[in-house]
């Protein structure tokens, strides 16, 4: 089998590309969490803003990734970063925003009103209420959003190889342009395995942070 032969001869390179891929996705989702979670919480307190934000994030999601990379090239060329890591990173951050902001927003909004009532009635400040009650209760749904974002960006990250960002997408891009099917297959399978493993690990974390209920056992 040519496929396994390819694996055994180039596993070193595959590992390196996987690491590149993880770095790109990890950094992008990390930044997206730092932006999206606080922002999602912020818009729960500002109802009018939330509609606008969720709509814009939704629109960004509908832009095809290849087009978004294309848009970024002229803009980032101004600072000589038209291709490579930066545009890929920015695009992935943008794509991650929707699942993260939306899940955070919905999770906080859906906290049982009785819980909120009790927290306010006991004299918690807005910040204490968020930190001690609403965020812990909302965490499983926020984690689900992060999980979606990670799987999504692992997929989109493969296309970033076209603008020279590296990662496992490189095999796919190179394989297609040289009509080398095995190379495309190895790239695609590697990306899939990475996504499945990441999803599984994040699922374990999600379970860890979920408050136990009578139904969870």
């Amino acid at each position: 089998m040519e496929f396994f032969e390819f694996f055994s001869t180039s596993w070193n390179e595959i590992l390196m590309m996987t690491w590149e891929h993880i770095q790109l996705v990890g950094l992008a989702v990390g930044v997206a969490i730092l932006l999206g979670v606080p922002f999602g919480i912020y818009i729960t307190q500002h109802e009018t803003l939330s509609n606008l934000v969720l709509t814009v994030a939704g629109i960004i999601m509908t832009i095809p990734s290849i087009a978004l990379f294309g848009i970024m090239i002229p803009i980032l060329s101004v600072i000589n970063q038209g291709i490579g890591f930066l545009p890929a990173f920015l695009a992935l951050v943008l794509y991650s925003q929707l699942p993260i902001i939306r899940n955070t927003f919905i999770a906080i909004k859906n906290v049982d009103p009785n819980m909120r009532d009790a927290a306010i009635g006991m004299g918690m400040t807005t910040w204490q209420r968020l930190r001690k009650v609403e965020i812990p209760i909302a965490l499983p749904v926020i984690m689900a959003g992060i999980r979606t974002a990670v799987v999504l960006t692992i997929g989109i990250g493969a296309i970033a190889a076209y603008i020279g960002a590296g990662g496992l997408g490189e095999y796919i891009a190179r394989g297609i342009s040289t009509s080398y099917t095995t190379m495309v297959q190895v790239g695609a399978v590697s990306v899939s395995v990475l996504a499945i493993v990441a999803d599984y690990l994040l699922g374990r974390i999600q379970k860890q942070v979920s408050p136990k209920t009578a139904h969870s056992k």
């Binding site: 819980m115 009532d117 009790a118 927290a119 009635g121 004299g123």
Partner: peptide, 21 residues
């Protein structure tokens, strides 16, 4: 208002306990 609430006990019908604590 925050201090006022801390000086008044408050019990609601149900589900007032925080499930994460």
């Amino acid at each position: 208002s925050i201090e006022l609430r801390r000086s008044i006990g408050y019990v609601i019908q149900q589900n007032g306990l925080f499930p994460n604590m």
